Amino acid sequence: MGAQRTATTIGIGVLAVILTACTPPPGPLIDAVRPSASARATPESPSTPAPLVDAGPCDAVAPVHAVADPADPEQLGGKTLEIPVDRGLLDTASGEAVLNAEGVPVAYRVAPGDVFSTIAARFCVAEDWLLIVNHARRDNNGLYAGDTLNLDAHTIFSVGDQNGVVSDNVFPPEFTLPPQR
């Protein structure tokens, strides 16, 4: 219970930083939320690494900006929704992308050695955005091979796990989420 409360407090702190458009100072909050190199996914069994591809730039992806109409339900805490684009396998983001019927990545299965920041870069989304869409079901204190990361803001409460466990973290009541499926 204490670990979940700590993770929820950290998650709310991250949400507050994003909502106020401030960059937090370096320190324990950053270290607690963003997995370090030691929090990389660990292999379940030795295997041959997947071949890497040229990921290409994220130039075509629209930047995240404030929502013009605060009543617009298609937002994530006052910011426009990010639509992931899979740039392909990267050295520390070589897991499996799960696509919807339109070919848009909606989830990601973590591979051994994956790193959170590289996963965000692979899908052309901000790390903080990726943390928020995974806040409800993960404590964000490490990645494990086989974890499922959510990439779709419409499935915040139904997609994702951490080391086989689904957390039950909450968002502040004033934080606007898009309609959930």
Rank of each mutant, 00 (worst) to 15 (best):
I18F: 03
V110R: 01
T80V: 08
T176A: 14
G160S: 11
S94D: 12
G56D: 11
P84H: 07
D69I: 05
T42D: 05
A39I: 00
C22R: 15
G11T: 02
D69K: 08
V110K: 02
T23E: 15
L89P: 10
T92S: 14
E82N: 04
V33F: 13
T9W: 09
R137K: 15
R5H: 13
N163C: 11
A97C: 09
P73H: 09
E174D: 15
A37E: 15
A3T: 10
N140Y: 04
D128A: 13
F157S: 14
N150E: 03
A32N: 08
P24V: 00
I132S: 00
C22W: 12
T23R: 12
H65L: 10
I18S: 02
P73N: 11
A153W: 11
I10N: 05
S45W: 01
G13R: 02
V133F: 09
A121Q: 09
A101R: 15
M1R: 13
T9L: 14
P173Q: 10
P49E: 04
P63E: 11
A7F: 06
N141D: 15
G11L: 03
A68G: 03
A71E: 12
D72T: 07
R5S: 12
K79T: 10
A7E: 06
D161Q: 10
Q4D: 15
V14Q: 07
A7H: 07
R138D: 03
P46N: 05
R137S: 09
P105I: 04
A136D: 01
G11D: 10
G27I: 03
A55H: 12
T20M: 09
A97Q: 08
P172L: 14
D59I: 05
A121L: 10
L151N: 06
S38E: 13
Y108S: 08
Y108G: 04
A39M: 12
N140D: 07
P35G: 13
F171V: 05
V33C: 05
D72S: 06
G27K: 07
D128V: 00
S158V: 08
A50F: 09
S117I: 04
M1W: 12
A126N: 12
A62Y: 01
E102F: 09
D69W: 10
P43R: 09
T6S: 12
V133N: 04
V125F: 05
A97H: 05
E44D: 07
A41R: 00
A55W: 07
L99A: 02
S47D: 11
H65P: 01
A60G: 13
I12S: 01
A145V: 00
I132M: 04
T176L: 08
T6H: 11
R5T: 14
L177P: 06
F123K: 01
R138A: 08
D59K: 09
